[in-house]
Amino acid sequence: MTPPTPPPPTPTDPTTSSDLALLEVSSPVARLTLNRPDARNALSLDLLTALHARMEELEKREDITVLVLTGAGKAFCAGMDLKQVLNVPGAPARLLSSLGEFTLRLRALPMVVVGRVNGAAIGGGCGLACVCDFAITHADSKMGFPEVDLGVCPAVVAPWLVRKVGAGRARRILLGGGLMSGQGAFEAGIVTQVVPTAAELDGAVEELVQRLASGGPHALRATKRLLNELDGSLDAGVVRRGAGLSASVVEMPETQAVLRTKLGM
């Protein structure tokens, strides 16, 4: 009998996992920061693992009413780190599955979640903005779903965008690909508020967070729970099927060829 082949090593991030997702709590507000600024906070397996660990903490906390999700540096989140997984068999499926599970946990958090979209929110990154209950950006940020331009399928984020903007508008956005400005994202309904410049972002986030935090914590939790039930947010099956579909498209030879060219590999 030949021993089983060990799985190929997954490239790891130099920083430790807890540093990749920073959690600061100042009850009743908490801030979760994607902290991989050199990679524009692209979602690697390590970053997602760190985010999952933070979810575990947040799911237990009863003293937090509002969570702010944001990115360190200039970008909010540049999307899936496809470069890292492209040549590793099985890795796209693990990455997409981890993203799918993260979106479900983020949505199911009992506290109100505000996306502070400080810069580029692309593909899976724009999907995270859709999962948040609120999202604020500035007029010049770059947002959108360019998956179809790369030959991949935005299947994990599609259910979240459909819930956010409706099926008809989501279809136009996802099949059209490309990017839009923060102002465009506001007009499309992807973000709930836009400020003219990046310098005005923190003031607007602070104002919204304070207003939200003035609500009764139990009333907010009960309302969010009901909204999640009504719009099917707790249907894990659809997100899991989406992750499987998305991974199967990434692993198609046609897609791999397009990705190598477009990502310059």
Partner: peptide
């Protein structure tokens, strides 16, 4: 013309998935 220029496999998979979702 813009849609037609994109890779077809990903486009078809995305459209099929949107049909399933809605």
């Amino acid at each position: 013309a813009d849609l037609a220029a994109k890779p077809r496999g990903g486009m078809a998979a995305t459209k099929r998935w949107l049909n399933e979702l809605d």
